[in-house]
Simulated scan of single mutants.
Amino acid sequence: MANEEKDLRGLAGRIYDLDEEVYRELGSSLGRVFNGKKADCIEETVRMMHERNEAHILRNELALISNMARTIPDDESRRRIMRKYDAILKEVTELPTSFIKGDILDQKMAQLNALNLSSRFSDSDHLIICIGRTYGCGGSEIGFTLADTLKINYYDVEIFDEVLKRLEAEKSTVHDRGGYPYKKNGKDERQYLNEIPAFAPAPKSTLKEKFREFNRYHGLPKKDAVFFNQSDLLCDMAKREDFVVMGRCADAILTNNRIPHISIFITAPLEQRIHRVMEVRKVENEKKARHLLTRLDKAHIKYYKYYTGRNWGKARNYDLCINSASYGIQGSVDLIMRMISQEK
């Protein structure tokens, strides 16, 4: 047991050191994920390695490091650092509490898969994969694993928030919590993500805060200003890099701006999703998990319809719809890879 704990601390230390190395190579604070004391950061990372329901936080920290590492201009340095990253990621995914554990595969459904493709990209277009997903279907894990397999950047609501916050250090803009309320009782608590996942209602603003936001966003409602700002960021990213993006109405935004992309929707039967949420997020009972998923699905439908005019989850809006229970996490990634090999 003592050796296992020592191994975890060693792994956490290597993650911290990798982040520091990326920071040194880039020469910018924008490349730093861990800003606290090394001992404290290692302690927090080890704690997350022990907690299955916090595996997604570690996953996103690794994604931020790899996203920045891929911007290192020197080819040799970038390859050296990415080799270290690959080795670390392999160890992290092999942990019993890894984000990749707890698959969604249903063996009976796995026999029913099929695929049909068409080509659309020119040589000058970047590979952009937009993934919509229902909560509890393993969609985020599929998106992250896909991005890592392709060696391209990965963005979800939490990483988008980090990107937009870092841009604020350089210019005045707005950023979106995307429905993930980090703050609770005035404190910045990431654990709150596990209590109320996506699309939770924002805290009520005071009259003074509303007036300040009115001036800041030029009279637009904050949510609308955030959406337009987010749309601009997505389109700008599409000109510069390949990436996988989770949600954010990215498929509709890119379609409206005539930017080639692959649009995928991932879901699974409700019972499978309930089981996964209870297992991975440690939701106490089936009734609570069912209520949570129903509420989140309704919020997704409302948000997507409001900003896109489309129906969220309807097959006609996507290039590929995947029942992750038919493939599992790695099987879903393999399926998408088959599609990409023919698309590009």
Results as ranks from 00 to 15, higher is better:
residue 1 M to Q: 11
residue 6 K to I: 06
residue 12 A to M: 14
residue 12 A to P: 15
residue 16 Y to E: 05
residue 16 Y to H: 07
residue 25 E to P: 04
residue 26 L to M: 13
residue 36 G to Y: 10
residue 36 G to I: 12
residue 47 R to G: 15
residue 51 E to V: 05
residue 55 A to G: 09
residue 63 A to N: 10
residue 65 I to V: 13
residue 73 P to C: 14
residue 77 S to H: 02
residue 82 M to S: 07
residue 83 R to W: 06
residue 86 D to S: 09
residue 88 I to D: 06
residue 96 P to R: 02
residue 97 T to A: 09
residue 97 T to M: 02
residue 99 F to D: 09
residue 100 I to Q: 06
residue 107 Q to L: 14
residue 109 M to W: 14
residue 115 L to N: 05
residue 115 L to W: 09
residue 118 S to V: 00
residue 121 F to M: 05
residue 128 I to N: 08
residue 130 C to F: 08
residue 131 I to K: 00
residue 132 G to Y: 02
residue 133 R to I: 01
residue 135 Y to R: 14
residue 135 Y to V: 12
residue 138 G to E: 03
residue 139 G to T: 05
residue 145 T to E: 14
residue 149 T to D: 08
residue 152 I to T: 06
residue 161 D to V: 04
residue 161 D to F: 09
residue 162 E to M: 08
residue 167 L to M: 06
residue 168 E to W: 15
residue 178 G to N: 01
residue 179 G to K: 08
residue 181 P to S: 11
residue 184 K to I: 14
residue 185 N to W: 04
residue 187 K to V: 04
residue 193 L to S: 00
residue 193 L to I: 09
residue 200 A to K: 09
residue 201 P to N: 14
residue 203 P to A: 11
residue 205 S to L: 15
residue 211 F to E: 15
residue 218 H to F: 10
residue 226 V to A: 05
residue 236 D to L: 11
residue 237 M to C: 07
residue 240 R to P: 13
residue 252 A to N: 03
residue 266 I to N: 05
residue 266 I to K: 01
residue 268 A to D: 03
residue 269 P to N: 12
residue 275 H to K: 07
residue 275 H to P: 00
residue 276 R to D: 01
residue 283 V to I: 10
residue 283 V to E: 01
residue 284 E to M: 06
residue 284 E to H: 04
residue 288 K to D: 06
residue 289 A to D: 10
residue 292 L to Q: 15
residue 298 K to N: 11
residue 307 Y to S: 07
residue 320 L to V: 07
residue 324 S to W: 13
residue 325 A to W: 02
residue 325 A to K: 04
residue 329 I to E: 12
residue 332 S to A: 14
residue 333 V to W: 02
residue 339 M to P: 01
